[in-house]
Nucleic acid binder design. Sequence first.
RNA 1: GCGCGUUUAGCUCAGUGGUAGAGCGUUUCAUUGACAUUGAAAAGGUCGGAGGUUCGAUCCCUCCAACGCGCACCA
Length: 737
Amino acid sequence: MSDIPKTYDPSGEEELYRFWESRRYFSPAEPKLGDNIFSMVLPPPNVTGVLHMGHAEMLAIQDILARYHRMKGDITLWIPGTDHAAIATQEKVEREIYKKEKKNRHDLGREEFLKRVNEFASESHDYIVKQIKRMGASLDWSREAFTFDDDRSKAVREAFVKMYDAGLIYRGDRIVNWDPKMQTTVSDDEVEWQDEVTPFYYLKYGPFVIGTARPETKFGDKYVVMHPGDKRYKKYKDGEKIELEWINGSIIATIVKDEAIDPDFGTGVMTITPWHDTTDFEIAERHNLEKEQIIDLRGKLLPIAGEEFEGKKITEARELIVEKLKSKGLIEKIDEKYAHRVAVSSRGGGKIEPQILKQWFVSVNSKFQIPNSKIEGVPLGSETTLKEIMIAAVKNGQIKLVPERFEKIYFHWIENLRDWCISRQIWYGHRIPVFYCEKNKDKDMIIASSKPDKCSFCGKCEMEQDPDTLDTWFSSGLWTFSTLGWGYDDKLWEKEKAFHPMSILETGYDIIFFWVARMILMSGFLLGDIPFKTVYLHGLVRDDKGRKMSKSLGNIIDPLLMADKYGADATRLSLIIGAAPGNDIKLSEDRVRGYRNFSTKLWNIARFISMSGEGNFSGDGSLSDSDKKLLDEFEDLKKRVAQNIESFQFHLAAEELYHYAWHAFADKIIEEMKPRISGGDKSERDSAILVLKKIFYGILVLLHPFMPFVTDTIYRTFGELFVFAGERHDSLMDASW
RNA sequence: GCGCGUUUAGCUCAGUGGUAGAGCGUUUCAUUGACAUUGAAAAGGUCGGAGGUUCGAUCCCUCCAACGCGCACCA
């Protein structure tokens, strides 16, 4: 006894994890008929950086689920992996290379640049895996996957071809979000809106006054639009042409009536720039209007702006144009403090410039015949759309979102969903599996999962693969089944199908649209099935003042540092207790320290019982009536804890266990036992020690999903305490709930 | 603009149709204790505001306010 330290020492946690791994505790047995199956995929962390508290929270919650179900006897699979995070990773590596070598990706060339990115990704991957293990996550590493490894690449190409064949992927000239800084398109969801105060100009446009915050886009404006019901402009007819003086001289403008115009905004009249504005583009599409490009892909004005302005950056051109408008007397007035929002890329931070470009899209509204379907409300062979599938799967209750309020947010997003632009002009990522005849790149193309041997159009050329890559979420969307053999290993898929759909998808509410919705889309089309039954959404981890943790604020709490200082278990518990589903959690080091104290408390309970039981304990296994009652009460607790875990109330389960172990078991039960243990009545003493052992063992089992390291360390260190059960395991991981 | 959430002790947050809970903090006492990281106790709340339903509301309903978030977007 004397050689056992007075506190729990977390420095042995990594070794204990290696022990668990060596025993293959994390790999499920092959499921047989009638087995209960529990399956999850780990939302793959990006290989851009290091694990933060948000990851630690997700790992803690999922590990609770995995360990709980494993101990309950379910065949439990939890698949690990990482995400290549195409645009984020490329951006990061580009920035670092530029910082060190003052070179951009074009200086290096595609091949060399990709080599550098892969090196970075691989290093980053190794570190992330180490960190995941440090948190105790019981993942089946034998099935580790990467969204950009060979198997997943095959699955991605397979998916692309299938979707193209069904008419769900098309190539077209449509308005997209162009990031002039990164030189690529980004999806609607990757655009952030920032508040900005700028001057707002009222310009004379013939008989009208139009308002704009961006006079530099107005060169080509030759349509003037107003609401058809606006009485002020009743005398102007749709399609009517008028001549007027504009920036670079006299032009002919056409009147257009469209309901998209808000009569109450400004003067109720506007001119449109279809090439550089989404709303304008849609108006132009409706009325079949001409579209002209004003700004090039680098953010400079094109010849249409006239010699004076051509080649100028839009920011510097603005002032000059305003000067010119002034001198021509075309400015009615200027509102200097106009508050609006500008679109900014959430990746590179560049200002988004809408452009019309030939890109690849996933059509969410095209009808297709679904070849097989297990989705309720979408019968096999029926005509449907991706949008309908995405709605049906949640509406019919096959997929449940927890907390439920996120279902409304989900539906709302889908209703507003536009076609998904999936092509990116970055280099790091899945290359689009389309091959063009070098003679006629616009028309002659083959969509295939591998490069054709010979060009079937000209019969001579090598065929050129599309230079673009796919949005990273395209591959993430396949994650629940691309990790099980789908698309690259049919035999494996046959076998592993049993785990699909996943029991639970656990992730942050901030990626419902990016990821959750895309998985439902992909699985719905490719498998005719849901990807998971329940989506549990956790909140975000913030600092103690409720701010997001960020480098610039310097308020990051490193989970690894906390794990080394206070133990991984204390870190986990600090992220669980006090966090209701879907609610953000405020974290401080004090919280973590508090739960470290709990680890110490558990450790000392073990020491005390161990010391008390030393010597001449030789009970016959019988318990006094009052001790039996204590066991009954513990059984009730067990039921409540299980119920809370099943209903995702982890904070309640953990808190109740915490409270019971410390303030009921240690403070009251043990204290009351002390006189019996030191008293002379042998049967009283034996019964007391036995019931303490039994309850404590129960506490360790119940706490193990929450605090795997300290509970198993106690179990393995104080081995003699737990032999009463007749069997003695090597680890609590063998114990059953 | 549409929608969602939050508002409970000094702080951070749980929770419930029947006398209000935890952690941290504060105060007092005990304790060299299995526990450095201990125990016992105390102070501290008309549960955001107003109305309604009910025998009874912090909880259910309506309205309002403040804060936060999502979506859309005004040129």
